[in-house]
Every structure is written in structure tokens, then in C-alpha cells.
Amino acid sequence: MSVNTIDTAEKFASGEATVAKLAWTRAEVAADRSWSIPLPAEVIAEFKAYRKDIADPAALIDTIERTDVDLPHLATFSVRLREQVLGRFGFVLVTGLAEGGFSEDEQRLFYVLTSLHLGEMLTPYGRLHEVADRGYDYRSADVSVSKTRVKAPFHTDSTSK
């Protein structure tokens, strides 16, 4: 299923109640794997060329903005990702980044850059939030369950918009 992302984005911005039909069953997800998108070789090559001049990728994660970089292949690929996220299933799995031979910090920077190309990042816990047990108990403190050992059921995180 293809979605006109311009119309979808306009619907979202206008506050329409329904942006896209995002209800699906396990069987539909299994039958239609359009949600799994391989990272194109040109995007990997472009990012490799970009990161070769970066001494410390981790230092950029919290400060870099989309306007700081010129990554046309990533920008084009992000249109496809946005179509999938705002379209049929509401999620996407990007595969193939491991083939780039990137360090963990480079992968994190790639994730941030991709997110910035998709839209505005919501950052109540920072740009990249590690989901890990920090020893908190959500029943006795106002803390996100992502900082506890509680097993949350399959869910989506709400937006603050």
C-alpha cells in the first residue's frame, strides 16, 4: 500500500482525527513485509563518507541538526521510511546497517540523523534513551516504566503532541 506522504503530513498537521488506517493483525504483518526495508548501499556509502571526517560521533548526537548535514541519499530514503510509518502499519524495520561496519556511536549518530530527516524528535529523556532497569519502582516514584524491570506489553509510546 502506498500513501501520499504530503497529504498524510497535511492531515497530521491540520489535526485531523485519522491520518492513516494503522490497525492490523499479526497475520497481515506476517503476510505483508513492506515494513522491513533494507538500507540502500548508496545511503551506507554516503554515511561512510560523511563520518570519516568526524573525530567523535558521540559528541554530535545531542547537538546535530538536519540543516548541519547534506545527505541527499538519506533524505530520499527517509521519504520512503516516512511513507511506511505514516502509511499501512505505522512502523518500519530498517535492515542492513550492520553491514556498514559502523561503531556503536556511529550507528547512534546514523539513527539520530535518520530521525531528524523524518521529523522533529521528541526528547523528554534526551535524543537517545536507553531502556534499562535503573532500579526504580514505578509504583512508589513518578518514573517511566522504561527505567524499571517491569515487562511492558507490546505497545507504542504516545507522542506529547
Rank of each mutant, 00 (worst) to 15 (best):
E10L: 10
K11C: 14
E16D: 13
A17D: 11
T25M: 06
T25G: 07
R26W: 09
R26V: 12
R26P: 10
E28L: 12
V29K: 10
A30L: 12
A31H: 06
D32F: 04
S34P: 08
S34W: 12
S36R: 15
P38H: 10
L39W: 02
P40M: 02
A41C: 08
V43S: 04
E46A: 06
F47S: 00
F47H: 09
F47E: 05
F47D: 09
A49S: 14
Y50H: 12
R51F: 05
K52H: 08
K52I: 13
D53E: 15
D53R: 11
D56W: 04
L60P: 03
D62P: 05
I64Y: 05
V69Y: 04
V69W: 01
F77R: 01
F77P: 05
S78K: 09
V79D: 07
R80K: 07
R80N: 07
R80I: 10
R82W: 12
E83L: 14
Q84W: 01
G87R: 08
G87L: 04
V92C: 07
V94W: 01
G96W: 09
L97V: 15
L97I: 15
A98M: 04
A98Q: 09
G100I: 08
G101R: 10
F102L: 13
D105L: 09
E106D: 09
E106L: 04
L109W: 14
L109F: 02
L109N: 10
L109H: 05
V112C: 11
L113C: 06
L116S: 06
H117Q: 13
E120C: 04
M121L: 12
L122K: 11
Y125H: 11
R127T: 14
A132Y: 00
R134Q: 00
R134D: 00
Y138T: 02
R139G: 02
R139Q: 11
A141M: 15
S146R: 00
S146D: 00
K147W: 01
K147D: 05
R149Y: 09
V150R: 00
H155L: 10
T156D: 07
D157Q: 03
S158I: 10
T159P: 08
